[in-house]
Design a binder for these strands. Structure first.
Lengths: 181, 181
DNA sequence: TTGACAAGTGGAACGTCGCTCCGGTTATCT
DNA sequence: AGATAACCGGAGCGACGTTCCACTTGTCAA
């Protein structure tokens, strides 16, 4: 990649991070290009779809959550590991409004640039869940998709209203209690 | 109201119902006007905001859910009444994609045309919850907002993916079990 | 060092949207 | 029948996502 292209790419990512934290994953692409002092063509050259841009922003976050799940599996009791991970999952999505909707959309679209890292993260969560089930801590009629659906649901609702966001930990706790024996 | 105005209003509502069921609460207003064979001015004259249009479409639905809560309170055991109502709440929102987001937004904006009927419905749900708590069926560290948040969260997630929608009843059941002793 | 050219760029253009506004039309009442 | 208030359609504005292409510039071989 040419040096000027690399500069523009870096600059776009910096600005995109800022704008997405401010306006969510539905932020205006034009606005991002404008703030990066770059034409629309340049933005689209580097990130042909909105997902491609989000992938660069969120992919690492997903990877880190997947790693975190594995680390917790090694260091904590099954039920507690699951609890901690879910808490971090929900809290971690907070700064990026719309991230939960993006995750669900991504997971259904195998062509999405985010698909792989998102699926890997979901699988890591599933492993934590199964471990807790084998330990007898979690009821057996729950699978990874149930877990993923519920934690995204709670993540989503906590970004809809400040009064609900304040209860994030409580809502997570209520839902997890429903999964626990 | 003049006869022609009434005709246009009725026609707009018919078409809006159709289009919203097809495209969700974020449906294009221009599209609604077009399909109703009416100008944008006419649409905005009758429904000055998107909420005003939704109010006409969804208000009755909310009222009916509120009444339903009261009826269930009279005819069922507290825990079962809550369970049935929550199930109907979540299932009933299914045909209108985006309804859960609209409800949360509406509830935070007292100027919204939908605010009153939405708040009334939430209060009806809260009464069912409190009744179940007094009967000792539901844990006491849950309030009406927790309940409302959770059922909207589940409602929302079930409109995000067909594979999740299939599990609607199961997810509702998991969440309710978390509230139950 | 220089020249050719692939790689990279910016922004105009198109069709969409929500929303406002207004000149023309028409139902209704006297 | 005529006046008039209510009602109408759609043009216009500034935003959006996305595509496209004429122009500029970094790079590398000669």
């Amino acid at each position: 990649m040419r040096a000027d292209a690399q500069r523009n790419r870096d600059r776009l990512l910096d600005v995109a991070k800022e704008v997405v934290e401010e306006h969510g994953t539905q932020a205006s692409l034009r606005d991002i290009a404008r703030r990066a002092e770059v034409g629309m063509g340049t933005l689209y050259r580097h990130f042909p779809t909105r997902d491609a841009l989000l992938e660069a922003l969120l992919g690492r976050r997903f990877d880190r959550l997947a790693e975190r799940a594995d680390a917790l599996a090694d260091s904590r009791e099954p039920a507690e590991a699951l609890r901690v991970w879910v808490g971090e999952f929900v809290a971690g999505g907070a700064p990026y409004r719309g991230i939960n909707a993006s995750m669900i959309a991504t997971l259904q679209d195998p062509t999405s640039a985010l698909h792989a890292s998102c699926a890997a993260m979901r699988n890591a969560g599933t492993r934590l869940l199964q471990r807790a089930q084998q330990a007898g801590d979690v009821r057996n009629d729950v699978d990874g998709l149930d877990l993923f659906a519920l934690i995204n649901a709670v993540g989503w609702i906590t970004e809809q209203a400040e009064s609900i966001a304040e209860r994030r930990a409580h809502l997570v706790s209520l839902v997890l209690d429903g999964l626990t024996h």
